[in-house]
Nucleic acid binder design. Structure first.
Lengths: 186, 186
DNA sequence: GTCTATACGCTGATAGAC
DNA sequence: GTCTATCAGCGTATAGAC
């Protein structure tokens, strides 16, 4: 792994753990055992580093989506949930939740970069739900897009709230979402 | 309104808009037209100010809860949602979401202060759901506590995500939650 | 309660040597 | 690519006058 890739990975970890405004180039430098000035060679500004983090996460989402393209809707949704499970096991929140919370304190370039990523995630979940409904395995009354928002906000939110209420709540929520989706409504 | 009260209100606004780490005593000072040193008279440290914000929000929750004590479950839940509606109209996120996201970068005293508040909010919503179920107006298969977590995370999450996806999504979600709660499951 | 003055660590960032 | 050296600005916080 190159220094650049390492920096992106470390920055991602710190953003998901403490937030964009709470990590510094020095945090990265001491872990990498280099000087802060060297980081600026790879990323001129902190915003540039933030953008690289967003792009990398976006690619990661797209890869997961592609890897599950031919699977059934339940498996697809579980693949989506697995991202959050991994974050939860590390006490982290998700990138979208972390950056959206701090959004209005960040360089507008961050919002610009984040927007299409959020929209593509929303589209992905929406498509999974549509397919599930068509195949008769998922049942819900809201529009697929609204139901996708409900599920995404459940995942995003429980990562944050369960830092306080207890980490077992994540699995409670995850299980409940799937169970409810599989239950027919009158 | 006293200077102290004004400071709490302003700090609350800034935390919900930009996050705890993104606002400074200077932000407060310039708005109040005083010097930063004066703020330290009211709140020795930034953490002390944060704690005051949490207490004030807690009181606000308790007051709303008390004011709706004798209402029906639907009205109670709508009162709960109204908090988030007000935040949304100002482009803000909620206190719990904002602080939980930054939690691991903050003084542990913040977490200690926040924990009972989150638990009391969760208890409030849980009780509303229990009552609604008992009276036959709400229908859900998860435990009341888990369903409360689902609804709270929907509210918390949509405030954050809709900064990107569009503010009308808040009402979509709010309406869908209530509609789904009122629908019988098989 | 608010002020002036000040301390001082941290932060992102730059210039230029190697 | 990484370093040393350096910077200006910001941030919280304190001491002591008024």
């Amino acid at each position: 792994m190159t220094t650049k890739e390492n920096l992106i990975k470390l920055a991602t970890d710190l953003i998901l753990e403490k937030g964009f405004n709470a990590f510094s180039f020095y945090d990265l430098a001491k872990t990498m055992d280099i000087k802060t000035a060297s980081i600026h060679y790879h990323f001129p500004t902190k915003t540039d580093l933030g953008i690289a983090v967003i792009r990398q996460q976006s690619e990661s989402f797209i890869a997961l989506q592609a890897a599950n393209q031919k699977k059934d809707p339940v498996t697809k949704l579980e693949a989506f949930f697995s991202i959050y499970s991994r974050h939860k096991s590390q006490g982290k929140v998700c990138m979208v939740g972390s950056l959206c919370t701090d959004l209005y304190s960040l360089d507008p370039a961050i919002e610009k970069e984040l927007k299409p990523v959020v929209e593509s995630i929303l589209q992905w979940v929406t498509d999974i739900l549509k397919e599930g409904k068509r195949k008769g395995v998922f049942h819900f009354s809201a529009t697929p897009r609204t139901k996708a928002l409900l599920i995404i906000t459940n995942m995003l939110g429980i990562l944050q709230v369960s830092r306080i209420t207890g980490k077992t709540d994540f699995n409670e929520v995850r299980t409940a979402i799937l169970k409810e989706l599989k239950t027919k409504t009158e």
